[in-house]
């Protein structure tokens, strides 16, 4: 959500997602994206080599949102 806030808090490991507040695991009904965020965190948990490493998931908000809209259309949840 806010990289500068994360950098000030100095967590030992963090994954930064450049997405809207209230969407830290993605968008509604996008199971693959929600899962990918968690798997990215677990991988970082295993592979981080020094405290303070911040990993970034290279998926912009606009892409996540577009994919979510397409999924909702397929599910018949939006026209």
């Amino acid at each position: 959500m806010a990289l500068d806030v994360t950098e000030h808090a100095k967590p030992p490991r963090a994954v930064f997602l450049p997405w809207m507040m209230g969407h830290h695991f993605g968008v509604p009904f996008h199971r693959d994206l929600q899962r990918r965020v968690i798997l990215e965190c677990l991988d970082h948990l295993v592979s981080a080599e020094r405290s303070g490493e911040v990993r970034t998931l290279p998926i912009p908000w606009v892409q996540a949102r577009k994919e979510g809209i397409e999924i909702e259309r397929r599910l018949g949840l939006r026209p």
Binding site: G22, F25, G26, V27, P28, Q34
Partner: peptide, 21 residues
């Protein structure tokens, strides 16, 4: 904003995804 979370809680609280893993 909670509009998305109220439709699918997993966007902020990924209970279902964690259980699957």
């Amino acid at each position: 904003p909670t509009a998305s979370a109220n439709r699918d809680l997993n966007v902020i609280f990924p209970l279902d995804r964690l259980r699957e893993l």
